[in-house]
């Protein structure tokens, strides 16, 4: 059927429905439950830092639902945390757009306390301080200092340069230290 009796490479793949059982665990995706257990807490902290404690839960939920939907198509051995933070970033942007129609970063502390109704959120001061940061700084702090991503990766997600991300994180941390430090020393 094929010239020279050789099947084109494209067709040479063995039937994907009868995979080599012994090698399955190496090449296939982990149960999604493990993804939630391993990365759920970090993604929640990231969402909280970017959005605050209340909206964070909606963003987290949308992130993991979207991730669950797309998961079977994720290439094995992908950097799952970077993948999740990228999704969370987009969801947080959506949330942020809903919340702040005109996003003008002021760099000053909001007058009224946050509606931080979460009983487990012990550190209201910290969330107040984070709220005072411009969005870009909050993102850089969250992705680098909380998710532990290198600045190159942070830059890829937020769409700026590595230097800009590094600066945004440094500025953010500086402000946080000042505001949070004042709050915590009361």
């Amino acid at each position: 059927m094929w010239p020279h009796g050789i099947r084109p490479k494209f067709f040479a793949r063995p039937d994907s429905r009868s995979p080599d059982r012994a090698r399955l665990p190496d090449v296939s995706l982990k149960p999604f439950e493990e993804i939630v257990a391993e990365h759920g807490p970090t993604v929640l902290r990231v969402c909280r830092a970017v959005l605050g404690p209340v909206e964070a839960e909606d963003a987290w939920s949308e992130t993991f639902l979207a991730a669950l939907r797309a998961y079977p198509d994720l290439r094995p051995n992908s950097n799952v945390e970077a993948w999740l933070v990228t999704i969370a970033h987009r969801k947080a942007i959506d949330q942020h757009r809903i919340r702040v129609r005109v996003p003008v970063p002021t760099g000053t502390l909001p007058e009224q306390p946050t509606d931080c109704a979460e009983p487990r959120m012990r550190d209201t001061d910290l969330w107040n301080a984070l709220r005072a940061l411009p969005l870009k700084q909050r993102q850089a702090v969250a992705y680098h200092h909380i998710a532990g991503m290198p600045y190159a990766e942070v830059a890829r997600i937020v769409g700026n340069s590595e230097d800009a991300s590094r600066r945004a994180a440094a500025d953010g941390i500086k402000t946080l230290r000042r505001i949070y430090g004042e709050g915590a020393s009361r």
């Binding site: 399955l24 665990p25 296939s28 995706l29 149960p31 999604f32 998961y71 079977p72």
Partner: peptide, 8 residues
């Protein structure tokens, strides 16, 4: 996860 679905 491998044989049915990874959506576990």
């Amino acid at each position: 996860s491998a044989e049915v679905s990874p959506r576990v």
